[in-house]
Design a protein around this nucleic acid. Structure first.
Lengths: 119, 119
DNA sequence: TATAGTTCTATACTAAAGTATAGTGCCTAA
DNA sequence: TTAGGCACTATACTTTAGTATAGAACTATA
């Protein structure tokens, strides 16, 4: 991937490109929502039940954000009353790899810190 | 890594562990600071010059945070006037891998979005 | 007719994050 | 002696993020 190589030579552009990714996950609720959808498509009220303490304003705002950013798709079914399902796009699904790498680093880092490493 | 496996089975714990990592990078200035230090150790004023628009309050606050989180080390030299250098810990350095994975995903995702993928 | 479920939106508020500006105490070189 | 660099801190302020609470508009079921 030559894109990556060229970005690594320019700190400013590197950070700019990185922000695209960071924006996907900033905020208190985006990762919990994405994680909830890893286990299959869900309706609004199901997500609400799965994420304790989220309020409806935040849930609907973050779902809209995630949809606008191409992470989540909103499917409307013509039932009465209307049924709406949220699911991850393929980008959304592939984000799992990123999350796993972050998690692994976090576990390793925590171990280092507990061992008192200062270097 | 069996830690990872067991976390992946529990969404709540998974998110909790992930937050350790997310905390390292949240805020407007942490990633730029980390990126600046990838290119070697630097003094306060050098970082300041490299990151346009950061103000001294933020720079010193974020450096303190990063130090507290074991990402950055502060080295004090007994010169007159005192010389202080900031450098990445080994955890801080290994975070580059995470950033690269994030960047790669971001580039791929941007391509998908431009192609108009909704799935 | 009342109650409850679904998918939200509206309004008002508080808390957290970030900015602007000035200044401290130390030193050196002109 | 004054000007400037270094490594910050202090105070006040604005902006952004998140919370609390209520309710709309629809329908099915008791």
């Amino acid at each position: 991937m030559s894109d990556l190589k060229s970005l690594q030579d320019c700190p400013a552009r590197y950070i700019l490109a990185l922000n695209d990714t960071v924006n996907v996950i900033t905020g208190k609720w985006k990762l919990p929502i994405i994680a909830a959808l890893f286990f299959g498509k869900k309706r609004y009220s199901e997500i609400e039940k799965e994420i304790p303490n989220i309020n409806p304003r935040m849930l609907s705002k973050e779902l809209r954000d995630l949809e606008a950013n191409g992470i989540v798709t909103r499917q409307v079914y013509n039932t009465v009353p209307v049924t709406i399902e949220y699911l991850l796009t393929s980008s959304g699904q592939s984000f799992k790899t990123v999350m796993d790498v972050m998690l692994e680093w976090g576990l390793e880092h925590r171990k280092n810190v507990l061992e008192g490493d200062k270097v």
